[in-house]
Amino acid sequence: MTSSPGPLISLRRAGKIYQSGRVRFEALREIDLEVAAGDYLAILGPSGSGKSTLMNIIGCLDRLTSGSYLFEGDDVSGLTDDGLALLRNRRIGFVFQSFNLLPRLDILENVELPLIYQGVSRRERRERAMAQLETVGLADWRRHLPTEISGGQKQRVAIARALVTRPGLLLADEPTGNLDSRSAADIMEVLETIHAAGRTVLLITHDPGVAARARRQVHIIDGRLTETPVGRPLT
């Protein structure tokens, strides 16, 4: 991991406006947010609050229409599509609510996927993906297809896939949204272990109970951000 002097993520007066024809929608307004390396932050907000937009911005899937976004000190707004793809590939791991595993690939191949786009050799891919699968306890399932395992297991595979490139940031979008409570608790524990190992984890959720597990939370409502001190009861 690079030891950058500044914060890992730095958003300044960040804004995102969607314009389609004459309809104009301001999804993010004047967002200021800093996330230090090694932090565990939850972004909490109801649906339609702009949290998905924020996650797309932070995850370098989308660009701001105003303000600035520095990732590891570098301005992301000037990057091309392929530059953003490279950043996602090397520095960011995604975990989605609906797992987003490729149904035709087996578990091991799913975990290997990001390494293909790094040009890593087949053999090294195998080895690294196996090692990562072991850390989530699914090495024995490597030849199974995603349809053959439970939701909780799927999310573990997704986490393994997100971490196989050793990214600076793990971005989890409602990672427990499709899980029963036991699996959800299980996944939350995994995320805590990852954070404990020194990784930066950013959690996006509408569930205050899930958000409470993070070290720090911010609220987003109508595209605006408010920081909530940890420990304060949530309404």
Binding site: G59, L61, D81, D82, A85, L86, R88, N89, R90, F94, N100, L101, L102, L113, P114, Y117, Q118, R161, T165
Partner: peptide, 8 residues
């Protein structure tokens, strides 16, 4: 999904 994990 492939784009998200870094496919150009």
């Amino acid at each position: 999904i492939r784009r998200a994990v870094g496919a150009r």
